[in-house]
Simulated assay, not measured.
Amino acid sequence: MTIDIALIRHSWLLVAPAAEKVTMHFYGKLFSEYPHIRELFPPAMDLQRDRLLRALTQVVLGLEDGEALGGYLGALARDHRKYGVRPEHYPAVGQCLLAAMRANAGGAWLPAYDEAWATAYRYIAEVMIQAAEEDAAHAPPLWTGTVVSHEVRTSDIVVIGVEPDRPYPFRAGQYATLQSAHWPRVWRPYSIANAPRHDNRLSFHVRAVPGGWVSTALMRHTRVGDSLLLGPPRGSLVLDRARTPHLVFLAGGTGLAPLKALVEESAWMPERPSIDLFHGVRHSGDAYDVQDLRRLRAQHKRLRIIQAVSGEPEHWPCHTAVDALEYHRVTPDGDVFVCGSEEMVRETTARLRAMGVPADRVHTEFSPERPSFVRS
């Protein structure tokens, strides 16, 4: 199967300016012609439309790298099992997607684009269907977790302990999507804040986002003993990406969670790396995990932790995590892991590059050139 990448890219340039219309057209057509598929989706579709656009962008930009694209599609397929997606749904999605792009190309759509996208979509569907079938042979589509701890640490941050109903095979640095009974079919991603444990328990750091359905439910309306649904583990912010013995971790807010998991994992390595962890918060009261970090520091022995406060002028020095890195004259001569808000990751990555840190030494869950996921 040969995909005409040039035609795919050219046609994408036609519809990209009208991306929002494309997604609205797509879902309108899909739900009107295949109403039984509507039940797989959440009541509100705003974030779902955004996810479709991001997935399409990722596919279009990644067509040359077949191995990486296959990995991305495989992870997407495994995650989609939790929605109840079946092989027979793929033709309907492909047909409606092509119709939506054709209708929003400003009259410039060519028959050759139809053929190129049909070929590309057949490849996408085949990869995803095969990955989902292989995953189904050894893993459930989702896990049911019981809330075993619920610690409110600040006015808007809670640390939740969850015990899945069966082994949950993840790696330190990965994330899981969670669904609360308060919002059926609404999933949000949260980084797992611990390395794998013998008791199979998971820890999540949740910041309640104003207007956020799931985060508010987890913060305000969840209690010990409640059940949550968990999607399969995803993400690639793992220690295997590092190639140097000195690591710098830069965390913003609850972006601390996956980096904390990496510290925990590294503490048990025969040749543990030395780690400088900079945790940036806006206000000193937002430093929600001080005790656990002290425990990790005592356990790790080669870990240094520096708290940076950026939103209090009276707090001196007034620093972000990357400001603190420069202030303490820590040379980022090894691998650097960055996690936080989209803005924090983008600005921190730009600062690191300006310091001369090579791009392949800066590790984030998502590239600064494309949006990260939204936790709400």
Rank of each mutant, 00 (worst) to 15 (best):
M1H: 12
D4G: 12
L7K: 15
L7C: 08
I8W: 11
H10V: 01
L13G: 02
A19D: 00
E20W: 09
V22T: 10
H25R: 14
S32K: 09
E33Y: 02
Y34I: 00
R38M: 03
E39H: 04
L40I: 02
A44G: 02
A44E: 13
R49L: 04
R49D: 03
R51C: 04
R51F: 07
L53R: 04
R54K: 07
R54D: 03
A55S: 06
L56I: 01
V60A: 10
L63F: 13
E64D: 11
G66I: 05
E67W: 10
A68H: 11
L69C: 05
L69M: 11
G71C: 00
L73F: 12
R78K: 15
R81E: 12
R86L: 15
R86E: 14
V93H: 06
Q95D: 12
C96D: 04
L97I: 02
L98A: 04
A103I: 00
N104T: 14
N104G: 09
G106S: 07
G106D: 05
A108F: 05
L110V: 00
P111M: 01
R122I: 04
Y123A: 04
I124V: 02
A125T: 06
Q130D: 15
A132C: 07
A137V: 09
T144H: 15
H150S: 12
V152H: 14
I157G: 12
V162R: 10
E163A: 08
P164S: 05
P164Q: 04
R166E: 12
P167D: 12
P167L: 06
F170E: 13
R171M: 12
G173Q: 12
A176M: 07
T177Q: 11
L178M: 07
Q179D: 06
A181N: 02
W183S: 05
R188W: 06
P189Q: 06
I192P: 02
N200S: 09
L202A: 07
H205M: 02
V209Y: 05
P210F: 04
T216C: 03
A217R: 00
G225Q: 13
G225R: 12
L228I: 11
L229M: 13
R234H: 05
L239I: 14
L239A: 13
R241T: 08
A242V: 01
R243W: 10
P245T: 04
L250F: 05
T254I: 14
G255T: 08
G255S: 09
L256A: 06
P258K: 09
P258F: 05
L262H: 11
E264F: 04
S266A: 15
A267P: 07
W268N: 11
W268T: 14
M269A: 15
E271C: 07
P273E: 04
H279E: 03
H279A: 11
R282G: 09
S284Q: 13
D286H: 03
A287S: 05
Q291G: 00
L293T: 01
A298K: 07
R302G: 01
L303T: 00
I306E: 14
I306G: 00
P317V: 02
H319Y: 11
V322Q: 09
A324H: 10
L325G: 12
V338E: 01
G340Q: 03
E342S: 10
R346E: 13
T349F: 10
M355R: 14
V357M: 02
D360L: 13
V362M: 08
H363G: 03
H363K: 00
E365S: 06
F366I: 08
F366G: 07
F366C: 08
S367Y: 00
R375T: 15
